[in-house]
């Protein structure tokens, strides 16, 4: 669903990832769907996993891509929407925070 205003995204709880030398691999543990992320999108994912706020990511992205802050903000928004459709991230209803807790390794079964 697409709406105006601010939205909060969180990582889908069943998404696990690994950063390789030239790409980042994401896997959805239940369906086993996978995605390869590289380039600027890999950078965005990296900064998301460091829990950077959006404005910081936008600023870094604008320098990385050599674009304006506004263009970087649009690029960030666009990739988040793409990942939402793919089931990698999801919108949190209201202002409820996403799942807290420590990093966890893949341990669940099917």
């Amino acid at each position: 669903m697409i709406a105006d205003g601010a939205s909060a995204y969180c990582c889908v709880p069943t998404i696990v990832w690994v950063k390789d030398a030239e790409q980042t691999i994401l896997i959805e543990e239940k369906t086993k769907h996978s995605w390869i992320v590289s380039g600027e999108n890999a950078a965005i994912w990296d900064w998301l996993t460091l829990n950077y706020p959006s404005e910081r990511i936008v600023r870094l992205l604008s320098v990385l891509s050599g674009t304006s802050t506004e263009e970087a903000r649009k690029a960030l928004s666009a990739i988040l929407q793409e990942w939402e459709k793919a089931g990698i991230v999801r919108v949190i209803e209201g202002n409820r925070r996403g799942e807290p807790g420590d990093q966890r390794r893949l341990q669940s079964g099917l």
Partner: peptide, 16 residues
Amino acid sequence: EEVMDFAVHYARLRAA
């Protein structure tokens, strides 16, 4: 750390 965050990804882009 932000310089590290940026430099690693920018160098990767240039390497690619």
